[in-house]
Write a protein that binds this DNA or RNA. Structure first.
Lengths: 252, 252
DNA sequence: ACAAAAGTATATGTTGAACAAATGGCGAAT
DNA sequence: ATTCGCCATTTGTTCAACATATACTTTTGT
């Protein structure tokens, strides 16, 4: 191994840089990002690499390349927010517009109780192990949410908890859809650190979901998941009623 | 315009060729696709283009590139089946394994009644126009489902009908998720052509969904959507009970 | 004879340059 | 004033050379 750093910035990824800039709003829909040759010079990298990275942004619908003109940022509605790479950027840099976060949360309010209910029906022992491990992590990283690193850990456990429940449905579509949770969970953990909502109460709600799934009680799992999301919506300053679907939906 | 063809094979897209081959099962998970130089020769194309296309397959999780070894087809569970490009390939070439189709249909059984219910609550006049236009197309292309072109048209209208309902939720996540419908709808139209199920009955069920949404009757829309999907599941030879979630879920 | 080490073959990864094609704007001619 | 054609800019395509990573083979030392 070399002396100084094992992995220098690996390579200055243009995709990463542009994603940060676009998600931060420095380039907005309709704007043009710097042209290829400028990016080459700016990052001391060859054009092939630049084009390769730009293509990644094109493939997820974030930019549009116009031959002989430039690369334009597309409207938010065009972005592939179901793409794992996009949700990762959203959770890392926050969504570029609040509306997207609201709609993702509305979606969660719609489906998560449903998913928890199914998990209660179909979860295997292995699924329960995954759910429990994530929950343990949630509890451990609860108190000392002081530094950024601790918060990141807590956030990861929170994500892992919800993803484990999605996977417990044993349906590939639900499992892959779990990526959509990341952005709003990361946002929640970040905001709850500022607004200091009650973490004990949140933990207890998560425990209820886990127990309901373990005990194979679908109805209880449905309600418990609703309770968790109500807390989430509240912490994010969104009323549960804002959901496009969930309102008024009750148990069979 | 030129004399012969307005769009020659555009270009022999390696991504398209490999997608067809992989979805047809000629390359299965674990297999290695031809190496770059062979593809260059086979399609009389340069290596940059080949690599660009291979990257597209990498980005959607279909293949994995191993430096100095080759490009391996990944397990089905790794594929990004929520990606629009992947669902387009699935609807064009059919899913490479039946299990994926089953799980997508199970997902539809879970969520479509829910989505129809919301559409009934939130659909605007414009949404209703889109739904109606698709429905008209369904009716027109019903009788003459003889040649392949007619069937394709019918399939497109079927897709448009369901997608319009998803968009009527006015939630970006649901709207983008509507891509997942394409594969099973195309499969249904193909199979129903062989098994000759009753198209009149299917059309009537779709009409019920549309009318329920128009009349703003969420509960009826929920039930009507369930009825459509029951017909779909039957036509595909899958019992509705195979759903991972939907079974036993009733209206509030 | 066996095992570790060095070397080789084969594939993907990276870089650089040159040329082709498309778009937008400017300007001249009608 | 409008249209046609030219030109500048930027992305698209192709080619060639070299670097790096992995698997297999050969060598070499005990």
């Amino acid at each position: 191994m070399t002396s100084s750093l094992r992995k220098p910035p690996a390579r200055a990824s243009i995709a990463e840089y542009l994603a940060e800039a676009i998600f931060a709003g420095r380039y907005q829909p309709g704007d043009f990002v710097p042209r290829e040759l400028d990016l080459c010079e700016r990052f001391a990298i060859n054009r092939s690499a630049v084009r390769s990275d730009l293509r990644q942004l094109v493939d997820v619908g974030i930019i549009e390349r116009i031959s002989g003109h430039g690369s334009k940022v597309r409207e938010y509605a065009e972005w592939h927010i179901l793409d794992p790479q996009v949700t990762e950027w959203m959770s890392r840099y926050a969504a570029p517009n609040p509306e997207i976060q609201r709609e993702i949360l509305a979606f969660r309010l719609d489906v998560e109780p449903y998913v928890a209910m199914t998990a209660a029906r179909r979860a295997t022992a292995r699924d329960l192990v995954a759910i429990e491990e994530a929950f343990e992590g949630l509890g451990q990283n609860l108190r000392n949410a002081s530094c950024a690193e601790e918060r990141r850990l807590h956030s990861e456990c929170d994500v892992a908890f919800h993803v484990a429940i999605f996977k417990a449905t044993h349906n590939i579509v639900w499992a892959q859809l779990s990526h959509i949770l990341r952005p709003s969970i990361h946002l929640l953990v970040t905001m709850s650190n500022e607004h200091a909502s009650d973490p004990e109460e949140s933990l207890e709600r998560h425990r209820q979901v886990m127990e309901s799934i373990r005990m194979r009680r679908p109805k209880e799992a449905f309600l418990a998941a609703q309770a968790v999301l109500a807390g989430t919506a509240e912490a994010l300053g969104l009323e549960p009623g804002a959901s496009s679907l969930g309102r008024g939906f009750e148990l069979p």
